[in-house]
Simulated scan of single mutants.
Amino acid sequence: MPDHVLTRIANRTGIITLDRPKALNSLSLAMVRALTAILLEWRLDAGVDAVLITSSSEKALCAGGDIRFFHEVGNATPQGGSALLEDFFTEEYALNHLIHFYPKPYIALMDGVVMGGGMGIAQSGPECGLRIVTERTRMAMPEVNIGLFPDVGGSHFLSHAPGRLGMYLGLTGLTIGAADALYVGLADVFVASTDLPALNALIETTPGAQLPAAIRAFAAAPVGESELQANRARIDAHFGADSVAAILASLEGDASPFAQKALSAMRQRSPLMMCVTRELLLRGAALDVADCLRMERSLVRRNFEHGEVLEGVRALVIDKDNAPQWNPASLGLVTDQMVARFFEPVWPAHAHPLRDLV
């Protein structure tokens, strides 16, 4: 295992600890490969009955993919055609698929920041998954803020959220806490951060096969109400509109602080990628996990060809001028043809890099 991925087995539970605290455990290609290798090994290991993924830092489980890396290698290659980029997204999405269908209980302790790629390694499948949040959880799919779109399976788990909650999260990129995560269905149980030492003791002393049930019994009700639940009617009304422009117009007519916060956020996002994201989620609602990941994989290639994500990362992370020059610059300049281009096949079906997902 590389330095940033630590592993051990305790009482028949395989424990993965992400240990890249200065980068909030942002995923490198080496980390993706390490996670894949250990999960494949433990999948067949009769001495491992469950898997837990956690962090060495209370600040984050994982803040996402290493976007500085994306910017560096994307700019070094015309139209973003870097082999390293190709490998990263192919292998990351294959890892997301592996986690979603993992045959043993897969438990994610989502303490601190869990965003983007961090959601991809935490959103396990409903059969064997258990997702824990704390009052420190800061969850988001903020990709439209850097000129990308909700990937790592986001086209599936956001499009299958109740009502228009997934559309709201995907188009605004706003952050939610524990109560909202539980309400949306992106988390299963709440544990207060003050109870984490006791939870860790429970993990150490409980056999892996019994661990999910033991954690559910240990969990508590979250402190505070869900803001999304309180605003569910207006979310469904606004984000059920038939275009991004119509959503913005609907929000403009709502003076509530909640609507105005969403409106302010969307005015800063990439106009093109908001439109692409809306189409992505509409399509994702009719697809299974594998086909969603295949769709996202093609969109990533189209995105780097276009260059929107490179400009977004430059503005927010590299130069930090917070003034991205989006292309197109305004929503009124985004055409249906521009959006459709992102969904055009990149590879023949038999040559798709994720063709072997089942």
Score class of each variant (00 low, 15 high):
residue 3 D to N: 14
residue 6 L to C: 04
residue 8 R to I: 04
residue 9 I to K: 07
residue 13 T to F: 01
residue 13 T to H: 07
residue 26 S to P: 00
residue 29 L to E: 02
residue 29 L to D: 02
residue 30 A to C: 02
residue 34 A to H: 02
residue 40 L to M: 10
residue 41 E to N: 06
residue 46 A to P: 11
residue 49 D to K: 07
residue 52 L to T: 02
residue 53 I to N: 04
residue 54 T to N: 13
residue 56 S to K: 04
residue 65 G to W: 07
residue 69 F to R: 09
residue 82 S to T: 08
residue 87 D to R: 10
residue 94 A to D: 13
residue 96 N to F: 09
residue 96 N to C: 15
residue 96 N to S: 07
residue 100 H to S: 11
residue 103 P to K: 06
residue 109 L to A: 05
residue 110 M to Q: 15
residue 116 G to W: 03
residue 116 G to Y: 05
residue 118 G to E: 04
residue 119 M to Y: 04
residue 120 G to Y: 05
residue 125 G to H: 05
residue 127 E to C: 07
residue 133 V to L: 09
residue 140 A to P: 05
residue 140 A to V: 05
residue 140 A to T: 11
residue 145 N to F: 05
residue 145 N to I: 06
residue 148 L to F: 14
residue 151 D to H: 14
residue 154 G to N: 04
residue 155 S to F: 10
residue 155 S to M: 10
residue 156 H to R: 03
residue 156 H to V: 01
residue 159 S to T: 00
residue 163 G to T: 02
residue 164 R to P: 00
residue 169 L to G: 01
residue 170 G to E: 06
residue 171 L to I: 07
residue 173 G to V: 01
residue 179 A to W: 02
residue 180 D to P: 08
residue 184 V to E: 07
residue 187 A to G: 13
residue 196 L to N: 06
residue 197 P to K: 09
residue 198 A to C: 05
residue 198 A to T: 03
residue 201 A to V: 13
residue 211 L to W: 01
residue 214 A to Q: 10
residue 216 R to G: 10
residue 220 A to K: 13
residue 220 A to E: 13
residue 221 A to P: 12
residue 222 P to S: 06
residue 226 S to E: 11
residue 228 L to C: 03
residue 228 L to I: 14
residue 229 Q to D: 12
residue 230 A to F: 05
residue 236 D to V: 13
residue 238 H to S: 15
residue 239 F to T: 08
residue 239 F to N: 11
residue 239 F to R: 15
residue 240 G to E: 10
residue 244 V to N: 05
residue 247 I to N: 01
residue 263 L to G: 01
residue 265 A to D: 02
residue 271 P to S: 08
residue 273 M to R: 08
residue 285 A to E: 13
residue 308 E to C: 14
residue 310 L to G: 01
residue 313 V to F: 06
residue 314 R to A: 13
residue 317 V to N: 07
residue 325 Q to A: 15
residue 332 G to C: 13
residue 335 T to S: 14
residue 336 D to Q: 11
residue 337 Q to L: 06
residue 337 Q to A: 15
residue 338 M to A: 09
residue 338 M to E: 15
residue 344 E to C: 12
residue 344 E to M: 14
residue 345 P to F: 07
residue 351 A to C: 12
residue 353 P to A: 06
residue 355 R to K: 15
